[in-house]
Design a protein around this nucleic acid. Structure first.
Lengths: 204, 204, 204, 204
DNA sequence: CATGAATGAGTATTCATTCAT
DNA sequence: TATGAATGAATACTCATTCAT
């Protein structure tokens, strides 16, 4: 049956997420994951080629199959690039707040020095980047956003800002809601993208 | 003579930086580091308690003893918070561009899931944060920066943006200069801190 | 099947006994033991926490689970404390003669300066001491043995004498039978416990 | 100067005795010994070939150069083998009681599984054995001791008994005086060697 | 003679992966 | 498919010994 198969694969991924979130990738063992999943060590190798592959899959599924589609759906109703930007901020914070274990794994383990691991994230990150880029472009077309800044740089600012805020939250005691950062973060980013200062060093 | 002592410690740190930058902390062995340093494995333990301690020292020396003092000095001539912000952007990119190995280690290995490693970075990161915060505060006092955004959030935007740009560069083929990002990044950040969209969704 | 489990544990203990007997504990490596056992190094750690634990187990099993129960059984038929003493002497020599490797490990490695190792022997040594003490007490009750010597001292004489004879044999080329010492040792010990020199320095 | 030489050699031996007594031979390092001696690590190698040689020397000097000569002197005044036996018991206990560190090293580390270490003890042990043997023989000549027991066995009993009592004391909290064992131990040993029981299993 | 920094051989232990059942 | 016992490669760390100063 295909169903069982899928179930167990998911079971392993959930267990791995929990274990990786608690101890970090390198400090986690296959035995721990199997134990949390309630299965035998060997069974894991029926679903994943090796330990690294679990992490890769975890990244891919989380970002490419969950985060990005959810974001696309969330953005659908909006036309105005400013509303879209707000939704990006809100969705980003909401997503990681609602799955702190995923947040931890993504934020902390994502910068693995193992090339293959990083490559597994690329498709998801790219998709996310494309969405942000599209939003920025749309804002420029709508003459809402500045057009003299390379989209690439604006996107890095947006992603970097959101990423930094989430990382800080993940490493904190998490006793505050990420959502309180939606408003100030959005206002900053909108400011950044909204051009009113022709001369940056003007003395009025 | 004690002279050798200081030299050898530095020698090990430089070797470790190179090796960690190439393979990542967990994929690097003491033997590799010793080999690059041209010394015996055991010698390393005359200067560092263990492998982790090398990484900790590398972080601390780079950020706390090099990056931060250099930044403080670079900011001295400036009074206007906008010029200070520009200098922060320039200095940040310049620093990591001029030491790509340090950049790689800092950007990639800094988010270690090992608590002790992260704690070794804290003093340096904190000092950096204080400098950014002071700059933002000064800008608000000079009535150059918006004052309705929590400093904490603005700082995370600044740091997150710079960090994201450096990380992308580090992971790229590095065939472009980080310094080309100074201008657009600065303009974005300045916009963020100076624009005042009383009504963010106004239709003028 | 669990059958292999028991077998392999015993296999390791036997291999360790042989290797320890040949080289001594500190000069023996896990790889040697595994090699003699015909298994992989790692397998040992499925059955023992560490190298020290193997030695501890070896002591405990040999003395507490083999030596002492065998002695108890051997003493059962006897009532007269003198016959019991004889049996103790005979059994002690017989036991170590029939397992020279165990003898060597016990005699040589038992006085480990590692506290934990010595503590592993305590239960066995204590049981043996209780048996000797009981025999001495019985002999005194039967008015066969002198009663003006603390049992503790008599016991140390008995054990010390037997131990010294075995150690000498273990360290010798073992080209003589330990059993030839049964008679003279027994006669000495019996003399010690039965003679009454009211005035030790009398000149008759 | 020869004097300095001798002083430093002795200094090292005293430091080693203290360190070995505390941690045991294998758990002690050259650096520890040098540190206690207040000298450099390398200096030790001007006086001893290696770590093992220190232990060997310690044994030899203690037993061959101190214990045995002192015993010979202590026995000089006596003619009667019984008095000599008493003096052996007293001297043995007195010697180790007055130097507990030496006692610990001798009792615990003497049964090293390293062949060379044991061989270093032989001359001293042999001299001691010869003294005991001579005493027993003298007692037999004086018709005070039984003559139907091999001297070798009697000697092992004497040595084994004394050794066992000292070892127990060394491993105890040492809160009792070894000298309280002089009388009972001597009486036991004298009993053992004094022939009055023609038939060991007589029922009177 | 004295030093102690440098050395590198030696080893216990871990753990991802395999495979017989 | 599922298992988990068996594996053995990989490696951080120790410490006796050396030798340039």
């Amino acid at each position: 049956m295909r169903k069982n198969n899928g179930d167990k694969r998911e079971l392993i991924l959930q267990a791995a997420k929990k274990v990786f979130a608690e101890n970090g990738y390198h400090q986690s063992s296959i035995t721990q994951i199997a134990s949390v999943a309630g299965i035998g060590d060997g069974t894991i190798y029926n679903y994943f080629q090796n330990k690294e592959h679990i992490l890769q899959t975890l990244f891919h599924e989380t970002i490419y199959n969950q985060f990005v589609p959810g974001l696309q759906q969330a953005l659908e109703p909006y036309q105005d690039a400013r509303f879209m930007l707000l939704e990006i901020v809100r969705y980003h914070f909401h997503f990681f707040q609602s799955d702190p274990e995923a947040a931890r794994v993504i934020q902390i383990e994502s910068r693995q020095s193992i090339q293959r691991v990083r490559e597994a994230m690329r498709p998801g990150i790219r998709s996310y980047a494309r969405i942000i880029d599209a939003t920025i472009n749309q804002g420029m077309e709508q003459q809402l956003f500045v057009s003299d800044i390379p989209v690439r740089v604006s996107r890095k600012m947006i992603f970097g800002t959101l990423d930094e805020i989430v990382t800080n939250w993940v490493l904190s005691s998490k006793d505050y809601s990420l959502l309180t950062s939606v408003e100030p973060a959005f206002r900053l980013l909108l400011n950044a993208l909204t051009n009113t200062n022709k001369n940056p060093f003007r003395n009025e």
